[in-house]
Amino acid sequence: MSAQVTLTQNPRLREIGDAYERLSRSRSLYTVLLIVVCAVIIIGGFMVADEANSGSFWGGLSSFFDYPADIITGTYAAGWGWFALVWSYLPFLVETINIAVLSTIIGFALGALLSFVASRNLVRNKLIVFCMRRVMDICRAFPELVIALVLVLSLGPTPLAAVIAVAFHTIGALAKLFSEVNENADMKPVDGLKSVGATWGQQMRFGVLPQVLPNFLSYGLLRLEINVRASAILGFVGAGGLGAELKKVVDWNYAADISAIIVLLVAAVIGIDYLSGWARRALIGKTGTI
């Protein structure tokens, strides 16, 4: 009660109190606005999607478990032969993982090179940095699907289409992250190397690379996880690997084969997630930011 009295009597305190109230009112207004915008997006988007969909939401809800149930009964019916099926699809899994690893290596190497010429602190020439950043943006903006479809058309159905498509996107995505790491690097080693007459390449190799390499590798491993998923999906449009096999058996509705491929794919995705998570923690240490 007494606090209220002093608040209204002291003009300075009243001013502060008013300012606080204005601020909190505008903040809560923003919060309400944000919630309303999100609600509109979700409800409006949901209605648009429901209308455009060939089946409806409420109709589908009841049949949601039908397909998984079909697959499980089909798998059960296959008996012990199911394990032989899993074994027979293993080479395709290896192909998918090969696609992912290969495209990550290519994307990593080219992305790292690109990032050094796209970092503001490492290159004096603003024009070069600007152009390289645009190259990066274009690589990143191209959805893998577009490149894969064009390549499948001209090369025929081959894993190479997926490799090029995923690598192209990886170059842009990694170069952006790498250049951010580069820009946070300590410039003192570079200055030291410059003062003893090192060339630009030597400054990068001995001054910057040792600082940023752990972060680069960590981002590269994170990208590998994403690329395993991407290369599985691209198989669906004819770019080889496990995805292509999955498309076949889904079209033919071979339940046991579908479950065999799904189990392989999920095991591979989770396995690589854990491996790369472990490797990243080893690289950056437990306190790492990534």
Binding site: A49, N53, G55, F57, G59, G60, S63
Partner: peptide
Amino acid sequence: RAFGLGPLS
């Protein structure tokens, strides 16, 4: 399979 072809899925 459940909701049919379309953005809802």
